[in-house]
Each structure stands twice: as C-alpha cells, then as structure tokens.
Design a protein around this nucleic acid. Structure first.
Lengths: 151, 151
DNA sequence: TATTGTTATACTCTATAACTATA
DNA sequence: TATAGTTATAGAGTATAACAATA
C-alpha cells in the first residue's frame, strides 16, 4: 500500500512544517492573551466558546469532549474548573439520565465577551494580517526571557 | 486602534476555528503515530527533524528552543531525554564556550528514518487527501475509549 | 553587565483504569 | 451488555526562578 519510503514530497513536507510552526506560534500568542485577559487556558476558552456558540448555551459532555479532542476525564477536570469559577453549570440531561448537560452562565458569557476582542485581535494580527515569520517571531515566544531588570 | 468590540468577522472567526480544529485533530493523530512508531513525543520529533534537516546535523540550544517555541529549561529537559536514548549528542560549542551544540547521532537519524514514512503517511491522509471532517473525526480521537473487551 | 544553559521546583494538564448509574 | 460520566492516580510536560560560567 505504501511502497515508497516517503509518501510526501519536500514541498508538502515543507508546507506541513510551516503550518505546524505558524499554528504553534499563533497558539502561543493566543494562550498568553487568554491567560492575561481572563485567566483561561486555551482548552477552557474553547469550551466556553463552543457553549456560547450554541443556541441553547448547552452541550453534553461527550459532545464537548469530541469537539475539543479530549478524553472524558480531562473534560470532567476542565468542566469542574469552569464550574468552580461559576462560568458554567452542570446538570443531568433531561432526556438521558446518564448524560450531563453543561451550560454557560451569564458570567461565562460576560467573560467570553471580555476575552474575545483581544483574542480576535491577536489572531487578526498574526494570522490574517502580517503572516511574515519575522513579525511573529519578534513578538511572542522567545526562549530567552529577559532575565531581570536591573536598577 | 480597535473600536469595534470584535475585529474579526464571522467568516474569519470560522476559518480560524476550523484551522485550529483541523490542526488539533491532525496533531492528535500524528502524536499517536510517533508514539507507537518510535516512542517519541511530538516535541522530540520536532527536535530530531530540525537537527536532521540541518546540513551539519547540529544546532545550538537557543536556536532549537526558538524554533520549537519552547522555554530553554523545557528544551534542556527534552534534549536530556534524547541524549539518554543516544539519539543526540551535546557538546560545548566550539566558537562560544557558553553555548551547547546539539548533534543528531546515527541512531537518531535511523529512528527518524523509521518514523518519517508513517508520519508522512498520516499527514498525507489527513491533511492533503481527505480533509473532510467526518473522516478525521472517525479516525483518531474519540473521547469514548472502547471500554473493555469482554470474552 | 548580558547571554547561554542547567537545575530545582512547583504546577498544570492529560490519560488510564476502576467504578457507579442509566439505557 | 453498552454508554455517560466521575474519581483516583500516576506521569509527562512546562515554566519560573535561582544559579554558574562565559562574552
């Protein structure tokens, strides 16, 4: 089925690496913004966004887990964190007693509203405006943290 | 500078979410393959690939950290793991006594050669051939792990 | 003084397995 | 019996701060 030792030509491989790198840098910048603006991890933001996007503001656990590419236990953990902060609610599903329906709260929507503009801005800048590596490189994730500010 | 509460229109936002989701799914599948084929995390693979791609087979720590979007301590950790397995070598840089030059070993190249074909195959399938969500969804990361096989 | 890299540490995240409860 | 979700747990990964050494 796959005789040639490499089924991707250099161009494809290059495209792939470029994609991965761009997304990595983007993700890094976005995570920083989310943390600063709303103390949210990326996964938590994804969950909130998904719920906020739903007409009912609700989803079942499994659906969320699938959408975010997550194990169920991991989702339980994250949903617990969000619930602790009052950003979502968990309740037994009306139709299926086994299921749990997660619903975004007003506070959750409010936080989402707080975080989204800056989030969109980062994406807009990094992904849609200036996609040059140099720009992205100079902005977020230098390995060399500025050490300490001396007086 | 940014008066409208949202600087991204729905189309852009949609494109962004789609991108993130596709990459997430891709990454998940790829990580699984790397783990199975060579017991490598994605970061470790990235490091090896970067070194293997270099004409000299070497890079300095900081360069690697920047490329992979990593903290230096994180890189030290990962490089240590790779070194333990004999896949890379670390030595003081010839020109700068402070620096450390990481070099891929023959074993490292061999492993890379072992892992790459399957890696490329996954990418080829998921990213370049059938980019339909349904396909990707059905393949890798279901939240519901098949529980247990009963006899 | 600034930069390179390592170490110690603390914390977050993630998945696996075992378990309960409902379908 | 299969599915939904939680819990306990264990492990990998990540970053921060402090440190040593060289430029």
């Amino acid at each position: 089925m796959s005789d040639p030792p490499q089924s991707l030509d250099p161009v494809q491989l290059g495209a792939y690496f470029a994609l991965i790198e761009v997304v990595g840098l983007l993700r890094h910048a976005v995570e920083q913004q989310l943390r600063e603006a709303g103390d949210l991890s990326y996964v938590q933001f994804q969950l909130l966004a998904r719920l906020g996007d739903s007409p009912t503001g609700s989803h079942r656990m499994t659906d969320l887990a699938d959408g975010v590419v997550y194990s169920r236990s991991g989702l339980t953990y994250q949903a617990g964190l969000l619930e602790k902060r009052g950003l979502v609610t968990r309740a037994t599903s009306p139709d299926d007693e086994r299921g749990v329906t997660v619903t975004i709260t007003d506070a959750g929507r409010a936080l989402l509203g707080t975080v989204l503009p800056g989030h969109a801005e980062v994406i807009d800048q990094l992904l849609f405006e200036r996609l040059s590596h140099d720009h992205m490189r100079s902005t977020p994730p230098r390995s060399a943290t500025p050490r300490r500010r001396r007086t």
